[in-house]
Simulated scan of single mutants.
Amino acid sequence: MTDRRRMNGPSGGTAPPFFASSLTSKTASPTQRTRAPDELRKIFLKTGLTPSASGSAYFELEPSTPTAASKSLASKAPALKLTCTVHGPRPLPRSAPFSPQLLLSTRIKFAPFAARYRRGYIPDAGERDLAAHLDTTLRGVLISERWPKSGVDVIITVLEGEEDDPWNKGHLNENERAGGWGMMSILAGCITVASAAIVDAGIDCIDLVTGGVAAIVRQPTAPLQVYLDPCPSDHEEIFAACMIGYLQTRDEITELWTKGDIKASTDGHGANSMGFEPLVDQAMEAAVAARLVLIEAIKESTGMKVQTSRIGHPKNAAS
Rank of each mutant, 00 (worst) to 15 (best):
S185R: 15
P66N: 09
T83P: 00
E162F: 10
G180F: 01
L134Q: 04
E255H: 08
D200P: 02
P123G: 01
M274L: 11
E163W: 00
S99V: 02
E285L: 08
A196S: 09
T24P: 12
A96G: 03
V152Q: 06
T106N: 10
E252R: 15
K42V: 12
V209D: 08
T14R: 14
S95C: 03
E237A: 12
V209L: 15
T50D: 09
A79H: 04
S29N: 08
S185A: 15
M7W: 07
L92K: 13
I191L: 11
G179H: 14
N8R: 15
T157F: 06
P278C: 08
D204S: 12
A197V: 00
T85L: 03
A289I: 04
D124K: 10
E127H: 01
M243C: 15
N175M: 11
E162H: 14
L228K: 03
P166F: 09
C205N: 05
D204Q: 11
T266G: 08
S95L: 05
I122F: 10
I311P: 00
Y117F: 14
M1T: 09
G270N: 05
L130R: 14
L40S: 09
F19I: 10
H313C: 06
T2M: 13
I311V: 12
P278M: 08
L224I: 02
V152P: 09
D207T: 04
F19C: 12
A132T: 13
D135N: 14
D153I: 00
L82C: 05
R4S: 10
T83S: 07
P112K: 07
G275P: 07
G211C: 07
V141T: 15
E285S: 05
S11Q: 11
L82I: 09
S195C: 04
H87Y: 12
L73E: 12
T136N: 08
A287T: 09
P223C: 02
P230N: 05
V86A: 07
R5Y: 14
S54W: 00
K305I: 01
R218A: 03
P30E: 02
A317R: 12
M184C: 07
A201I: 06
T192M: 03
P89W: 01
R139D: 08
